[in-house]
């Protein structure tokens, strides 16, 4: 992990997902892995104060560039989202854990909801040539989907929108069952309700017959999660969630967790702070 002043090389509008910033940051690009994030300072002063965490959406080691999807949420997010080519960005990263694609995985299923596409795109680009990859991508409308011209050709896509404006009407979890028998490994990133739905599917499957094809892929699925974050260095313990091992920090033990390790309650991350 390093502190690096990145230089914005391109800023593109990607609809409701926000702004895609391409940033020249060779030190971070050379270390970053899919699932990890950069903690970006919103300005040079102290208001807004907190850095914002963004999962890498592209890692170009050779070109020394990274890409981040930035939503103009709050004054900090807005400041970062309005950076333009040539502007400097104070980056801390790469931080956190990363996804591990098993060596013997032939069929890799990536599941992305909303801005959860970010790390899935990195995996799609990295793994598309090595194995068979399907990206299952969901959004509220077509405007919430990642633009298809920014996806590698070697990867197959299945899309869902809640309003039916593109692909299958519904959510990613509605079509997951069809793809599961195919998948050797599943990796997912998206909003908490999506992850909770995945967790419920996993729980049903775990209780069901052990012979079900694709069962292990969901049982061993890896997910990346979000949480309100402070330092991202592991000291403040603002970003903890509850896992099978107790409280764990999204910035250190995460953001990548085993789907079966994260505890959910009513579609949300389980309440921390209770004696268990």
């Amino acid at each position: 992990m390093v502190l690096e002043t990145g230089r914005v090389v391109q800023a593109s509008d990607i609809g409701e997902l926000g702004t895609l910033l391409a940033i020249r940051a060779p030190d971070i690009a050379s270390r970053a892995r899919p699932g990890q994030f950069a903690h970006v300072r919103p300005g040079t002063g102290w208001d807004p104060l907190l850095r914002r965490p963004y999962s890498f959406c592209r890692i170009d080691r050779d070109g020394g560039e990274i890409e981040l999807i930035v939503k103009a949420l709050g004054s900090g997010g807005e400041w970062i989202a309005t950076r333009r080519p040539g502007d400097a960005l104070d980056l801390l990263g790469p931080l956190g854990t990363s996804f591990v694609v098993q060596r013997d995985t032939r069929n890799l299923l990536l599941v992305a909801g909303g801005t959860g596409i970010a790390p899935m795109r990195v995996l799609a680009e990295q793994e598309g040539d090595r194995r068979s990859v399907t990206l299952l991508m969901g959004g509220r409308t077509i405007r919430h989907l990642w633009p298809s011209d920014r996806l590698p050709a070697a990867v197959e896509y299945v899309t869902t929108t809640e309003d039916g404006s593109f692909g299958t009407r519904g959510r990613v979890t509605d079509v997951l069952a069809e793809l599961m028998p195919w998948a050797d490994q599943i990796i997912a990133c998206g909003p908490w309700p999506m992850l909770a739905a995945l967790s419920r599917l996993r729980e049903d499957l775990r209780r069901g017959p052990a012979t079900r094809v694709g069962r292990n892929a969901l049982l061993d699925a890896q997910i990346a999660v979000e949480q309100h974050m402070g330092c991202a260095m592991g000291v403040c313990r603002a970003c903890v969630i509850v896992t099978e091992r107790g409280n764990e920090r999204v910035c250190r033990e995460g953001p990548v967790f085993g789907l079966g390790d994260v505890r959910f309650e009513r579609g949300e991350p389980a309440t921390v702070g209770l004696d268990r």
Binding site: P48, L49, N247
Partner: peptide, 23 residues
């Protein structure tokens, strides 16, 4: 101590509010 429930941090003008709860 397991600390307090989420959210534990919120941004304020030139500052932050925290409620970690001595985890």
């Amino acid at each position: 101590r397991p600390g307090n429930p989420q959210y534990r941090i919120a941004e304020t003008p030139s500052g932050i509010l925290n409620s970690i709860g001595l985890e």
